[in-house]
Measured scan of single mutants.
Amino acid sequence: MMAYMNPGPHYSVNALALSGPSVDLMHQAVPYPSAPRKQRRERTTFTRSQLEELEALFAKTQYPDVYAREEVALKINLPESRVQVWFKNRRAKCRQQRQQQKQQQQPPGGQAKARPAKRKAGTSPRPSTDVCPDPLGISDSYSPPLPGPSGSPTTAVATVSIWSPASESPLPEAQRAGLVASGPSLTSAPYAMTYAPASAFCSSPSAYGSPSSYFSGLDPYLSPMVPQLGGPALSPLSGPSVGPSLAQSPTSLSGQSYGAYSPVDSLEFKDPTGTWKFTYNPMDPLDYKDQSAWKFQIL
Rank of each mutant, 00 (worst) to 15 (best):
Q291R: 14
Y67M: 09
Y67N: 06
P220S: 07
S257D: 03
D219T: 13
L136R: 11
S164M: 15
A17I: 14
S152Y: 07
A207S: 06
F269C: 00
I298Q: 00
V264P: 02
R90Y: 13
S238P: 01
E80L: 09
M283L: 11
S167N: 06
Y261R: 11
S150I: 07
Q39G: 07
V242N: 03
A207F: 13
S206K: 08
S124M: 07
I162K: 00
T47F: 11
E52G: 00
I76K: 15
L253W: 05
E70R: 04
K75H: 07
P21K: 07
G274H: 02
Y32P: 02
K93V: 14
S254K: 06
N77A: 06
K88M: 15
W86Q: 15
P133Q: 04
G209E: 02
P244N: 08
L299F: 06
R43E: 14
R82W: 15
L146D: 07
S143Q: 01
Q111N: 03
V23G: 03
Q106L: 15
P224L: 10
Y258Q: 04
Q50Y: 12
D219P: 11
T273A: 02
T61G: 08
C94T: 09
A56Q: 05
D24V: 13
D284N: 12
K102F: 00
L186F: 07
L222I: 07
D290P: 13
V264H: 06
V264G: 06
F58R: 13
K75Q: 11
E70Y: 10
G183S: 01
L74F: 10
P7N: 01
S262K: 12
W163F: 02
E173F: 13
G183R: 08
P107E: 05
P232H: 15
S213R: 11
W276T: 00
F201A: 07
D140A: 01
L253V: 07
Q62Y: 06
P211A: 05
Y214T: 01
P7Q: 01
R95Q: 11
F278T: 00
E71G: 12
Q106H: 06
K75D: 14
Y258N: 02
Y67D: 11
P108A: 04
A59S: 09
P21C: 10
P125R: 12
S235M: 10
A293C: 13
F296V: 07
Q104T: 09
S292F: 13
R126G: 02
E168N: 07
L78V: 10
G231S: 03
Y67V: 07
E268S: 11
S254W: 14
K102T: 04
S206E: 02
S252Q: 04
P125K: 11
I162C: 00
G148N: 03
G151H: 10
R126K: 06
A200Q: 03
L16G: 01
V131M: 06
K38F: 14
V83R: 10
L218E: 00
N281A: 13
R48T: 09
S185I: 14
P184V: 09
S252C: 12
M5A: 00
G148D: 05
V66A: 07
M2I: 09
A35N: 06
P272S: 09
G8R: 06
Y11M: 03
M2D: 00
Y11D: 00
W163Y: 01
Q103C: 04
P285E: 03
I298T: 00
Q248T: 09
P144D: 01
